[in-house]
Measured scan of single mutants.
Amino acid sequence: ADFLSNDDYAVYVRENIQVGMMVRCCRAYEEVCEGDVGKVIKLDRDGLHDLNVQCDWQQKGGTYWVRYIHVELIGY
Rank of each mutant, 00 (worst) to 15 (best):
D2T: 11
D2E: 12
D2S: 12
D2M: 15
D2Q: 07
D2I: 14
F3D: 11
F3T: 12
F3G: 05
F3R: 09
L4Q: 08
L4K: 14
L4W: 14
L4V: 14
L4T: 07
L4R: 12
L4A: 13
S5Y: 06
S5G: 12
S5E: 11
S5P: 14
N6L: 13
N6G: 14
N6K: 14
N6H: 15
D7V: 03
D7T: 11
D7L: 05
D7P: 06
D7E: 06
D8I: 11
D8H: 09
D8Q: 12
D8L: 06
D8P: 02
Y9M: 05
Y9I: 03
Y9L: 05
Y9H: 14
Y9T: 09
Y9N: 05
Y9D: 07
Y9W: 07
A10M: 03
A10I: 07
A10P: 03
A10W: 12
A10V: 02
V11L: 15
V11R: 15
V11Q: 11
V11A: 15
V11Y: 14
Y12W: 07
Y12D: 09
Y12G: 09
Y12T: 07
Y12S: 10
Y12L: 11
Y12A: 12
V13N: 02
V13W: 02
R14E: 13
R14W: 11
R14P: 01
R14Y: 06
R14C: 08
R14N: 15
R14A: 06
E15H: 08
E15Q: 07
E15R: 12
E15S: 11
E15V: 01
E15W: 03
E15P: 03
N16Y: 05
N16E: 07
N16M: 09
N16R: 10
N16D: 00
I17D: 12
I17T: 01
I17W: 01
I17A: 03
Q18R: 12
Q18L: 05
Q18K: 15
V19P: 09
V19H: 03
V19T: 08
G20E: 01
G20I: 06
G20A: 00
G20L: 01
M21E: 06
M21I: 04
M21C: 10
M21N: 01
M21D: 06
M21P: 03
M22A: 10
M22R: 11
V23T: 01
V23A: 00
V23L: 02
V23I: 04
V23F: 01
V23K: 01
R24S: 10
R24C: 02
R24Q: 03
R24G: 02
R24D: 05
C25G: 01
C25W: 01
C26S: 13
C26W: 04
C26L: 12
C26T: 10
C26H: 09
C26E: 02
R27G: 06
R27E: 11
R27T: 13
A28C: 03
A28V: 04
A28H: 10
Y29W: 08
Y29H: 14
Y29C: 14
Y29G: 06
E30I: 00
E30K: 13
E30G: 14
E30N: 08
E31P: 11
E31Q: 13
E31R: 12
E31K: 10
E31H: 08
V32I: 07
V32E: 00
C33I: 09
C33G: 14
C33D: 07
C33V: 14
C33A: 12
C33T: 10
E34Q: 08
E34D: 14
E34N: 04
E34K: 07
G35W: 02
G35L: 02
G35C: 02
G35Q: 00
D36L: 00
D36N: 04
D36A: 08
D36V: 02
V37G: 02
V37M: 12
V37L: 12
V37W: 08
G38L: 01
G38V: 00
G38P: 00
G38W: 01
G38S: 00
K39I: 06
K39R: 13
K39W: 06
K39P: 00
V40M: 02
V40A: 00
V40T: 00
I41Y: 04
I41N: 01
I41L: 13
I41M: 13
K42S: 11
K42D: 02
K42A: 12
K42L: 04
L43Q: 00
L43R: 00
D44L: 05
D44S: 15
D44K: 14
D44P: 00
D44F: 15
D44V: 14
R45F: 11
D46A: 15
D46P: 09
D46M: 13
D46C: 15
D46W: 10
D46I: 03
D46K: 15
D46L: 13
G47A: 09
G47T: 10
G47K: 03
G47Q: 10
G47H: 05
G47N: 13
G47I: 08
L48K: 10
L48W: 04
L48A: 12
L48P: 14
H49Q: 10
H49E: 08
H49L: 06
H49K: 07
D50Q: 10
D50L: 00
D50A: 14
D50N: 10
D50S: 13
L51A: 06
L51F: 08
L51K: 05
L51H: 06
L51G: 09
L51P: 06
L51E: 09
N52I: 05
N52T: 06
V53I: 09
C55H: 02
C55S: 01
C55T: 11
C55M: 00
C55F: 02
C55R: 00
C55G: 04
D56S: 15
D56P: 02
D56F: 04
D56C: 09
D56W: 09
D56I: 05
D56G: 01
W57N: 03
W57K: 02
W57D: 00
Q58H: 06
Q58A: 07
Q58R: 10
Q58G: 09
Q58N: 06
Q58T: 10
Q58K: 14
Q58D: 14
Q59S: 11
Q59W: 03
Q59Y: 09
Q59E: 15
Q59P: 04
Q59C: 08
K60H: 07
K60W: 04
K60A: 12
K60Y: 10
K60F: 12
G61V: 03
G61E: 10
G61R: 09
G61D: 07
G62F: 15
G62K: 11
G62S: 10
G62W: 00
G62R: 10
T63G: 03
T63C: 12
Y64H: 10
Y64P: 00
Y64S: 12
Y64F: 09
Y64R: 08
Y64A: 12
Y64W: 04
W65T: 10
W65S: 09
W65V: 05
W65M: 03
V66C: 04
V66N: 04
V66W: 02
R67A: 11
R67S: 14
R67L: 01
Y68I: 01
Y68V: 05
Y68P: 14
Y68K: 01
I69L: 08
I69C: 06
I69Y: 12
I69E: 14
H70V: 04
H70A: 05
H70I: 01
V71G: 00
V71Q: 02
E72N: 03
E72S: 14
E72L: 02
E72T: 12
L73S: 01
L73Q: 03
L73H: 04
I74C: 12
I74N: 12
I74D: 09
I74F: 07
I74M: 09
G75S: 12
G75E: 11
G75L: 04
G75A: 08
G75Y: 11
Y76A: 10
Y76P: 14
Y76N: 15
Y76S: 15
Y76W: 13
Y76D: 14
Y76T: 14
